[in-house]
Write a protein that binds this DNA or RNA. Structure first.
Length: 697
DNA sequence: CTTAGGG
DNA sequence: CCCTAAG
């Protein structure tokens, strides 16, 4: 419409000219949106960081906990924690990577926890932690940042069982505590683990084992947890500190954006993709590497073409590193294991009733399980003498991931996914620990082994071990194929991210957690818009935080990580490219309208004016679209493809194109003050002040 | 970061 | 859509 007016009256241009560029601030806003996507990833990192912090602070706790030892954990406490957590966690931590992740995670956890947190029971192992949780809450909170608290809480929740309470997820918490306590040293790692995993995982993850590199030793913990093998991990995971930083920065941006309520824009995605694609990241370790890495300590992932060896040296890697930590300290593949989580039974809550939930944490590789779950006590068996176990998460052996600084969070995620996938695909097998001892006799019954008794359930643990056998990972049955030992598909790894395509592209922000899961299954793209919208809404509030955890405590994680990963992995490469989103007629209309008013050459403004909320349309996209529209308008209708654009719009395109081309030409030539007229209008637009007749309207 | 263009 | 060279 405007356009017409313009045509009719040259003056319209006038109005156009009035248009000004949006203030920078606005511009930022747009960008901000884009960031959101990253948030997810960040979440992990954040979690990891959180975990780290928690651990650190937790140390103190741990000690206290240890002392408390058997205390019962009370659910209530958890709640408290949550509250605290809510308060700050994110922000504070965000500064550090951890915080962000944590926040995210936390939220998720919280949810779960809350659920679980109904009744804490205590378990022996858990006891240690519990005290912390239970009593600690307050104390902990004091010591720990909110975030930490939060994390802890989560852990507790996860561990609920250990206390005997909740779903029996308590373990996580305990683990954390343990980790912390013992390790002060490497809480991060633990944290990471925790993050990765569910609460359980956290608990599961044993710091001690994890420590291998870091050698975290869990004094108090150690007892309960067998640590033996952790040593293997080396954890070499290095996350580029830089990455982290960057991420942080990004993250921060994201967070801001989130506030804005927009999903990360494509731009970031792009960057990420670029990075990924480009040479920089090589993250995904390959199975072989994995092994090696494990042995060595780090897996090197190759990403695509480039080599990706990440050195710990660089900060960049730190980021990855952290992630890895999240996962576990271990190598990329396994470590965090978030991937590996398995929920045996169901939600803890339900389980609680009848089942005993045992959560097991896997350490993999040599790791032992840190704790188990505890579930509710007695009832577990209730049903038929079935032993019900709830494994919230498995710890993955450490993965070594290197990512370029420039890598986006999304890329990092992918990388991790790939690594995990590869790991899973490869040689992991599950080990059962009872009373910290490995149960080697597979032929024995649970009853015989003592696993059926509640008492033992607490002492039941599962570990992921690098197994000679690849097949054996029951847990990840779905993924088996993945095995991409690195050799086979370094590149594949990339693809592992695959889902990403959709995710990355379309869903950057939205996709986050839940979406991820779904995404794997669903094509996100189509939903993208919706997603974004959702994202917007969510973003501010929950998304950033919740995503990570929200969807899934343990279960979801698995689903997400595992399944999707596999699929994605192969495609990873392509994934990078944004999904194609043909412009709808309405979009074209909006574009034409905006261009008529603003002219060509001010794509940022066009974007702001007509696609402010279309995060998936960048100004570059608009410019490109305009280019194609102009082309389309010039060719015969028969030659046109795709959704037909109304001729009326094409006509306007041509008119606007001609009009603005002229303007540009004039400008270049420097407006000669000669004749104005149409020119005038142009001049206005350009901001040229011409003595224009006073035409109003 | 934006533009402008080529791929 | 992507990628890049130039502002």
């Amino acid at each position: 419409m405007v356009f017409k007016k313009r045509l009719d009256y040259g003056f319209n241009a006038f109005s156009v000219s009035n248009v000004r560029r949006a203030p920078r601030s606005i511009r930022k806003r747009d960008r901000t949106k884009r960031v959101v996507e990253v948030s997810r990833i960040c979440a992990f990192e954040l979690l990891a960081s959180l975990a780290g912090k928690l651990l650190e602070e937790g140390e103190s706790f741990a000690s206290s906990n240890a002392s408390a030892g058997h205390d019962h954990v009370s659910v209530v406490k958890d709640v408290e924690l949550e509250t605290q957590y809510d308060d700050k966690p994110l922000k504070t931590e965000c500064v550090e990577h951890v915080s962000c992740d944590a926040s995210v995670v936390t939220s998720d956890w919280t949810t779960e926890n809350s659920d679980n947190s109904k009744e804490p029971k205590h378990s022996e192992n858990n006891a240690i932690l519990e005290p912390t949780l239970t009593k600690a809450p307050p104390a902990c909170s004091e010591k720990i940042n909110d975030d930490l608290m939060y994390t802890i809480r989560k852990c507790n929740v996860g561990y609920g069982s250990f206390t005997g309470n909740l779903d029996g997820c308590s373990p996580d918490f305990g683990d954390l505590c343990d980790d912390i306590s013992e390790n002060g040293v490497k809480r991060e790692v633990k944290a990471n683990n925790c993050l990765t995993m569910d609460p359980l995982e956290l608990s599961m993850t044993f710091p001690s084992p994890i420590n291998s590199d870091r050698d975290v030793k869990l004094p108090s913990h150690s007892d309960s947890v067998p640590n033996a093998s952790f040593s293997r991990h080396r954890n070499d995971i290095k996350l580029g500190s830089r990455d982290d930083d960057e991420k942080f920065s990004r993250f921060n941006k994201l967070s801001n954006r989130f506030k804005v309520s927009r999903p990360a824009t494509l731009i970031e995605d792009r960057r990420i993709r670029k990075f990924l694609t480009s040479k920089y990241w090589k993250a995904a370790p390959k199975l072989k590497d994995f092994e090696d890495s494990q042995a060595d300590g780090g897996i090197k992932a190759l990403h695509r073409k480039q080599k990706t060896y990440y050195n710990y040296d660089k900060c960049q890697y730190d980021t990855l590193y952290k992630r890895r930590k999240f996962f576990d300290c271990s190598s990329i593949v396994t470590s965090d294991g978030g991937i590996g989580n398995e929920n045996v039974s169901n939600s803890p809550e339900k389980v609680t009733n009848k089942n005993k939930c045992h959560s097991v944490a896997m350490s993999h590789g040599a790791c032992e399980i840190a704790s188990l779950l505890t579930g509710h006590q007695a009832s577990h068996k209730s049903d038929d003498s079935h032993v019900k176990l709830s494994i919230k998460s498995f710890r993955i052996p450490e993965l070594y991931i290197e990512v370029p600084e420039t890598a986006t969070v999304g890329s990092l995620k992918r990388t991790v996914m790939e690594a995990v996938t590869a790991l899973l695909g490869g040689r992991i097998h599950v080990g059962v620990l009872l009373q910290e001892k490995k149960v080697r006799d597979d032929s024995r019954t649970l009853l015989q082994t003592g696993i059926s008794s509640e008492d033992n359930l607490d002492a039941l643990g599962f570990t992921l071990e690098p197994g000679p056998v690849i097949g054996p990972r029951p847990i990840f049955s779905e993924e088996p194929p993945l095995q991409l030992p690195r050799g086979s598909a370094p590149q594949n790894l990339t693809s592992s991210l695959v889902v990403t395509p959709a995710l990355d592209t379309g869903i950057p922000a939205a996709t986050p957690d839940p979406p991820l899961l779904t995404n794997s299954a669903k094509p996100v793209d189509s939903n993208y818009e919706h997603v974004s919208s959702q994202t917007d809404m969510l973003t501010d509030q929950n998304l950033s935080e919740s995503r990570a955890l929200v969807p899934v405590p343990a279960m979801n994680v698995e689903a997400l990580a595992v399944v999707p990963v596999n699929q994605k992995i192969r495609k990873s490469e392509l994934a990078q490219r944004r999904t194609r989103r043909p412009f709808s007629v309405s979009e074209v209309e909006a574009l034409v309208q905006a261009v008529e008013e603003l002219g060509t050459g001010r794509w940022r403004d066009v974007k702001l004016r007509a696609f402010e909320n279309a995060d998936h349309r960048t100004y570059v996209d608009l410019k490109d679209k305009w280019k194609t529209l102009v082309h389309t308008a010039k060719i015969s209708p028969q030659q046109r493809r795709g959704e037909p654009v109304p001729q009326e719009l094409l006509d306007r395109v041509m008119a606007a194109h001609a009009d603005w081309s002229q303007h540009q030409a004039k400008q270049q030539g420097k407006h000669h003050p000669g004749t104005l007229r149409i020119t005038d209008s142009q001049a206005y637009r350009d901001g040229v002040v011409v003595a224009i007749p006073t035409i109003t309207m």
